[in-house]
């Protein structure tokens, strides 16, 4: 399976040195090396101290052990069934091991479903087959089945993913596939999670194009010009489908719920970097907070799981640099 990440991609834990280098690079571009070169050197050290720690932190999924599922704060390895399923060229029986949340008892329980799949089947197809033929009580959130509506986020083999984008045969290990709800969001029923907090975080950052020419905005007479270069500054960050995978994967927000989180912050940068936006530095004030950009420890897991290549981790570091740049400019 080929992956297509559009923006500069960040990587999980071993990322340590890169953000620091990025700091130096951009700061020296902005201010020129000189006195500030040594300042940026100090920032490298700070960067290493702050971000280095995150390299040691567990993130939500284990890259080397996809069967490990996070229950509470512990990783538990779920053993697969031993026997190999009979398989022919076109059809294959696969066991869907679904972690179901029962709202009445507030408990998580595993349930196995064995279903027939073919080489095109996605995990969502499988779940909908289960619902239609085996167990109509299974709750799943889904809609477009083409990776653009952001409904079907769940944890597949220990990794936050969109069910409609995961091919069953490529994902199954020893004839089975592990599925659980995103435990980084409050649970509603089975695989369905509650997005109220997630939406609230997004809304709190004022995610809309701010303009002062309101009559032109709502009764337009001509377009706002924008060059391709200006477009490309924010374009990668506008791909966010609000699926919630990044929040599920973020080690910070899962231990400190007051953190604004990767999705909302990436959208702050999206509007900040848009040449048509007039909010300017006001957007930075909103995020220059302990629970804003400075809570991000750059584990990079948000960018690792983003199905649309948004790279929230990068957006947050860019915001940090804008904040610092703004402070320096003020001193000058």
């Amino acid at each position: 399976m080929k992956e297509s990440l559009i923006a500069l991609s960040t990587v999980y834990a071993p990322m340590v040195g890169v953000p620091a280098l990025l700091f130096v690079y951009v700061l020296s571009l902005v201010f020129g090396l000189g006195v500030l070169g040594s300042v940026s050197f100090i920032l490298v050290m700070i960067g290493l101290l702050v971000f280095g720690v995150s390299g040691l932190r567990d993130v939500y999924f284990h890259k080397n052990n996809p069967r490990a599922v996070k229950i509470g704060r512990e990783f538990i390895e779920v053993k697969p069934k031993q026997e190999e399923k009979a398989s022919d060229k076109n059809k294959r029986a696969v066991t869907f091991r679904v972690m179901r949340f029962h709202p009445e008892t507030q408990t998580l329980k595993e349930q196995d479903y064995e279903i027939e799949t073919n080489r095109f089947s996605t995990v969502l197809d499988g779940l909908l087959n289960i619902k239609a033929a085996n167990d109509p009580t299974l709750a799943v959130r889904y809609s477009c089945r083409m990776g653009i509506c952001g409904s079907c986020g769940m944890v597949i083999n220990g990794r936050p993913s969109l069910a409609c984008e995961k091919n069953v045969w490529n994902s199954a290990k020893n004839g089975s596939i592990e599925i659980s709800p995103m435990l980084g969001h409050p649970l509603l029923k089975d695989l369905v999670t509650d997005f109220d907090d997630f939406f609230e975080r997004h809304i709190l950052t004022n995610p809309y194009l701010f303009r002062t020419d309101l009559s032109e905005k709502y009764n337009p007479t001509k377009e706002y010009p924008q060059t391709k270069e200006q477009l490309n500054k924010f374009l990668p960050f506008s791909y966010c489908i609000m699926c919630g995978l990044c929040v599920d994967a973020c080690p910070v927000i899962n231990t400190n719920p007051s953190f604004v989180g990767p999705q909302a912050l990436s959208q702050v940068y999206r509007y900040y970097a848009d040449s048509r936006d007039e909010a300017g530095k006001n957007r930075l004030e909103h995020v220059d907070l302990l629970n804003g950009v400075w809570d991000c420890e750059f584990s990079g897991s948000c960018s690792e799981v983003c199905p649309k290549g948004v790279d929230p981790a990068f957006a947050i570091q860019l915001l940090k640099m804008e904040v610092i740049k703004d402070d320096f400019t003020a001193i000058k």
Binding site: Y218, T221, Q230
Partner: peptide, 16 residues
């Protein structure tokens, strides 16, 4: 134009 004014990232030509 309205959708331009609320933030849609239209593809642009050389004249912006």
């Amino acid at each position: 134009e309205f959708f331009d004014h609320i933030g849609v990232s239209w593809n642009r030509n050389e004249k912006a």
